[in-house]
């Protein structure tokens, strides 16, 4: 039986190992330790709230997060009242009203995050033809640097990318409107350096260094890409304990029943 488990494990590993090595001319992504990694990891609420502040004050000018609703922010420790206040500070397009016209109203917790641009064309027109990706799932979409495509792989990438803007080496040919980043595949990225340190003034008094901001915003985006992660891991622990007990009893019953055949 143990051999069988070994075989299954080998098969699983092979499947993992067979994952394609993507063309990656960029530098290897440094590994960080994250509050949410490991089977018992949870999101650091304070870091996620600081990360939300960075997103609000910096990233959200270009990047949408269409899958998120203001009410979801309860998940990173904001109270219902705080969420209502955050939502009410936004102007949401609603309508049509009785005159058949769209109108602006203060946001509600059930509203989706207000996007910076009404549509893709408007974004491209405003940003030299570049389209900033929606950030709702960016962590899961960039999790390749982790062998199990876990959330920390994507967080490591975002954290590194935000700190990877450098002067291009001598002789490196840059295209127009592009920026040099040591971690971006191909090293040329349309996004100009968004964070340099002290871009926000943290409400909780934490010093807003560049590594701190990058770490916080990566934490926030990780929560955003899978808000149910804590429930998943917690449920998983209970399920595994149950399965281990069940399998143990089944094994004992199997031994007993088969005792007279062997």
């Amino acid at each position: 039986m143990s051999k069988l488990v070994l075989w299954l494990a080998c098969a699983a590993l092979l499947a993992l190992g067979a994952a394609p090595a993507r063309a990656q001319e960029a530098q290897p992504i440094p590994k960080n330790s994250w509050s949410f990694s490991g089977p018992f990891g949870t999101f650091d609420r304070a870091a996620a709230q600081r990360g939300f502040q960075v997103y609000e004050e910096v990233c959200s000018h270009c990047h949408s997060m269409n899958l998120l609703h203001y009410g979801d922010l309860v998940g990173i420790g904001y109270t219902e009242e705080e969420v209502k206040a955050i939502a009410a500070s936004k102007q949401v397009t609603d309508g049509p009203n009785d005159q058949g016209e769209m109108y602006q109203r203060p946001g509600r917790p059930s509203d989706a995050f207000v996007p910076p641009f009404p549509n893709e064309k408007a974004a491209r027109a405003a940003l030299n033809g570049a389209l900033p990706p929606d950030l709702s799932l960016i962590i899961k979409a960039r999790a390749d640097s982790s062998p199990i495509k876990g959330l920390s792989g994507g967080a490591d990438y975002v954290d590194a990318l935000l700190q990877g803007f450098k002067e291009p080496p001598a002789g490196f040919k840059m295209s127009a409107n592009m920026n040099y980043n040591i971690y971006f595949p191909g090293n040329q990225i349309a996004m100009p350096q968004p964070l340099a340190g002290d871009d926000v003034k943290y409400a909780d008094g934490t010093k807003a260094t560049l590594p701190q901001e990058a770490h916080d915003v990566a934490t926030f985006l990780t929560w955003a890409s899978e808000p149910t992660m804590e429930e998943r891991k917690f449920t998983g622990a209970k399920v595994l304990i149950f399965l281990l007990v069940m399998t143990g009893i089944l094994y004992a019953a199997k031994r007993q029943i088969w005792a007279d055949v062997h």
């Binding site: 039986m1 069988l4 488990v5 299954l8 494990a9 699983a12 499947a15 993992l16 089977p39 899961k140 979409a141 960039r142 999790a143 390749d144 062998p147 199990i148 495509k149 876990g150 994507g154 998943r232 891991k233 449920t235 998983g236 622990a237 399920v239 595994l240 399965l243 281990l244 069940m246 399998t247 089944l250 094994y251």
Partner: peptide
């Protein structure tokens, strides 16, 4: 039972390991 344990480890702790980002 043994199979479900292995399956559950993937579902709960590395659900995206076998998929494509």
């Amino acid at each position: 039972g043994v199979f479900l344990i292995i399956y559950a480890i993937f579902v709960f702790y590395m659900p995206n390991a076998l998929g494509d980002t």
